[in-house]
Simulated assay, not measured.
Amino acid sequence: MTKILIIEDDNVMGQMLYLYFSGEGFIVHRVETAEAGSLALTEFEPDVILLDLILPDSDGTEFCAKLRTLTDVPILVVSMKNSVNERINALQSGADDFLCKPFSMQELKARIIAILRRMESQGLGISSLTSESSVSDKIIFDYDRRLLIVNGTEIETTYSEWELMKLFSSSPGKVFEREELINAIRGIDSFVNDRAIDVHIMNLRKKIEDNPRQPNFIKTVWGIGYKFVLAQ
């Protein structure tokens, strides 16, 4: 059964999330602080994290970045902070999705199911692949550990970044429209806007490009989307 870790200090919202997802058949564990959330990673071993950005013992965005260094499970931010900058900061800190309060429980469940479906599909596909696969002489996919090796350096990726790189590497040179990239991350029944894709691409460039402002691998195709080229 899928395990959801809820990091939420608001008792009303925390209880609502706990009761809803417990009733939907998930195994749910709720904590109220960043410190307790860090401990729950190893003690509870969640499949998905729901993170509120307003916590009593930590800045939510900074804690999101810390979580990303500790785990590669999907992080979905649920927050009263609804400005564009807050969303961008959360995505840049490693979140895979952002949902503003108040929100529909059914929509949140749909997003969780969509991201888990993509992960299950990824797991089924790994068996037919070698543990490592070279995209070029500079980039290697380590499927066992779900990370990239760029110029000999191991690079950790978020779930969304990994899915994007898998899609890019499947068809080097192909121009992917933003809708295709969105579907690769969320599935066709879940919403995420173009700006979120742009942020994930920016984060990827910081990790794999020598100069993110003049990328060699992930190229922008203005008005359409992005393409991946095998840089020499």
Rank of each mutant, 00 (worst) to 15 (best):
T2F: 06
I4S: 01
L5C: 00
I6F: 00
I7L: 01
I7P: 00
D9Y: 03
D9I: 05
D9K: 08
N11M: 10
N11I: 09
V12N: 07
G14V: 05
Y18T: 14
F21W: 06
F21P: 01
S22F: 11
G25H: 10
G25Q: 09
F26Y: 11
H29G: 11
H29M: 12
G37P: 03
G37N: 04
L39G: 05
A40C: 02
A40G: 00
D52M: 03
L53T: 10
I54T: 15
L55W: 08
P56F: 12
S58I: 15
S58W: 14
T61K: 12
A65W: 04
T69L: 11
L70T: 11
T71W: 04
I75Q: 11
V77E: 13
N82V: 12
N82C: 12
S83E: 10
V84P: 07
N89S: 15
N89E: 12
A90L: 03
S93M: 04
A95H: 09
L99I: 05
K101E: 15
P102L: 05
F103A: 07
F103P: 02
F103H: 09
F103E: 04
S104M: 07
E107N: 00
E107Y: 01
E107K: 00
L108V: 00
A110K: 01
R111I: 00
R111E: 00
I113E: 02
L116I: 04
L116P: 08
R117P: 04
R118L: 05
E120V: 15
G123I: 15
I126Q: 13
I126A: 13
S128T: 14
S131D: 15
V135P: 05
K138T: 12
I140C: 06
Y143Q: 07
D144G: 11
L147N: 12
I149R: 13
I149M: 13
V150E: 13
N151T: 14
N151M: 14
N151R: 14
E154V: 14
Y159T: 14
Y159K: 13
Y159M: 15
E163P: 09
E163N: 11
L164H: 01
K166Q: 08
L167K: 05
F168M: 01
V175E: 04
V175P: 01
V175T: 11
E179C: 05
L181H: 03
N183M: 09
A184Q: 07
A184P: 02
I185R: 02
I188D: 11
N193M: 13
H200W: 08
I201D: 02
I201H: 08
I201E: 00
L204K: 07
L204D: 10
K206G: 06
I208C: 04
E209R: 10
D210R: 12
N211K: 11
N211D: 10
P212D: 02
Q214C: 09
Q214N: 15
Q214H: 08
P215Q: 06
I218A: 04
K219S: 01
T220L: 15
G223T: 02
G223L: 06
G225E: 04
Y226R: 00
F228K: 03
L230W: 06
A231Y: 09
Q232P: 14
